[in-house]
């Protein structure tokens, strides 16, 4: 499994795809990791609330048979936040759970990420977070892989 640090920021990657990746990475970060990422970029976790962090529900959809018509499988708690920086950049966060502090920090990070001067430092911090997640996922995958069944056919006699 390629680790995050081995996937350098792709200069050909469209801005939107990069921003979505940054938002998704911020979404997996702990509050401490988000504070550290901002601090490493020399930023303070301050911004004006466009919308106070709010916890709500999203309906999680599945598909009948896995690949068919959608159905409503059940809901999940989600917290969203929207902030604006003094320079006018707006940042958003949507993430699972009820942690308003974490959502607001992620939105601040998203806003700063859109400033070209802050982006490289934030990208580096987010890549480090993604690498930690990838390492944990790789370890989990190794443990699961050890439970794979290797069938062998018993001799069936004279045939």
């Amino acid at each position: 499994m390629p680790s995050a640090s081995q996937t350098p920021p792709d200069p050909g990657m469209p801005d939107l795809a990069m921003r979505r990746r940054a938002m998704a990475r911020a979404g997996t970060a702990t509050e401490g990791e988000l504070r550290e990422a901002l601090a490493q970029a020399g930023l303070t976790p301050e911004a004006e609330d466009l919308r106070a962090p709010e916890t709500g529900l999203v309906m999680v959809r599945g598909r009948i048979g896995g690949d068919g018509r959608p159905f409503n499988a059940g809901e999940a708690t989600v917290t969203r936040a929207a902030v604006r920086l003094p320079g006018g950049e707006t940042g958003f966060a949507y993430q699972l759970g009820r942690d308003r502090t974490r959502a607001r920090l992620a939105a601040i990070l998203d806003a700063h990420w859109q400033r070209p001067e802050a982006r490289p430092a934030l990208e580096a911090a987010l890549a480090a977070i993604a690498e930690r997640r990838a390492e944990a996922a790789a370890l989990a995958a190794r443990k699961v892989a050890a439970t794979r069944v290797n069938f062998f056919t018993l001799a069936r006699g004279e045939d």
């Binding site: 709500g56 529900l57 999203v58 309906m59 959809r61 959608p70 999940a76």
Partner: peptide, 16 residues
Amino acid sequence: RTTLPRLGATEPVDTG
């Protein structure tokens, strides 16, 4: 759950 607003619905999950 009844105290929370519905913010939307997800894309159908890809179990594959």
